[in-house]
Design a protein around this nucleic acid. Structure first.
Lengths: 180, 180
DNA sequence: CCTTACATGTAACAAGTTACATGATTAG
DNA sequence: CTAATCATGTAACTTGTTACATGTAAGG
């Protein structure tokens, strides 16, 4: 129910085209909300027919016309309504944990290999987030509330990765103990 | 793509009815995989027509006939194939983080209230997981590999909750600082 | 009397994924 | 010549949610 609100929030920051929104989701929102470009375009069209967004069409030669979306008063109201209501926590659906649950059917080397693959990604992301965090601290403290709030989302990304890395360590310790 | 594999894994442990599987998902798998009973019944029917499960129908008076599903050789093979392949990490889609991203539009008291609500749930779950963990340690170490693997999934649940509680603390610290 | 447990579903819908389509420009 | 960037989509499919349906028996 909340891709629409993710889009409204992103467009409330800055009016944007579907293409730009897709980039923002990939580059700055991957630890908050994911969406494919197909989903984004579909939802933007809906939000526009519902009057929560307005389009300004910018004709282009060679490429499809650019459609820049901006939020309307109704859009802001809808977003605020959602922000004010308590939302349910997302359900857990994790293939990696399912492999642990499957226990005796999951071969140790396969699990270890998978762990190594994911660990690489985690460390890469951790490095990126830490860089952004460093930039945050180079700015005078309590600059804008908006900025501080977004920093909290980043912190969550970091804490999440850290806890996965701790877990990976525990898994390795236990599996090696079991082999010995 | 993996509710089917969650079901295959659960049924591989013990043959079960849809009703029982729904209970197991709620009681023992909520930190691994979630599914509603509708989804479970739908998927069980599919898995049966595909020959990955077999049904044994136990007639009952008054209630609908009980259908007990067991895994077939083909089912085990399909499950092992999936377990052996590296799976992508699930995408993040978190309403709470979206509220942080929305920053200046999210009222501080609303966020604090939501945090308090979720924190209660986290602490409750934490207590439950810790009890199960204590039971784990009361058993002679390295009993069965299966059991140890499932313990790892539990550990992940605990680490996840702990990192959320840490984050909740950071959020509170920052928002109170901002108000002062 | 009312709720919970038992035991299965159907139907409609919303959300997310995967594959395909178009066509120009720029960088290697 | 090849791949990536720009910029938009459609179509088909799978997965997950929500609402509704049926009917018994036990416990407070």
């Amino acid at each position: 129910m909340s891709l629409r609100h993710a889009l409204l929030a992103a467009i409330h920051e800055t009016a944007a085209t579907g293409y730009e929104l897709n980039q923002r989701f990939e580059e700055r929102l991957s630890h908050v909300w994911s969406a494919s470009h197909q989903q984004i375009y579909r939802e933007l069209a809906r939000l526009e027919t519902q009057g929560l967004l307005v389009v300004e069409i910018q004709p282009q030669a060679g490429k499809p016309d650019r459609k820049r979306y901006a939020i309307t008063a109704a859009g802001i109201k809808a977003l605020q309504g959602w922000l004010g209501a308590v939302q349910a926590r997302p359900a857990v659906r994790d293939p990696l944990l399912l492999k642990c649950f499957a226990g005796d059917l999951t071969p140790t080397p396969a699990l270890l290999k998978e762990l190594a693959v994911h660990e690489q990604t985690w460390r890469r992301e951790q490095a990126i987030y830490r860089q952004i965090e460093a930039r945050y601290f180079s700015v005078p403290p309590s600059l804008s509330r908006h900025y501080r709030m977004q920093y909290l989302a980043l912190r969550r990304g970091l804490l999440d990765i850290e806890s996965w890395l701790v877990w990976a360590g525990e898994v390795r310790a236990m599996l090696e103990q079991g082999d010995a």
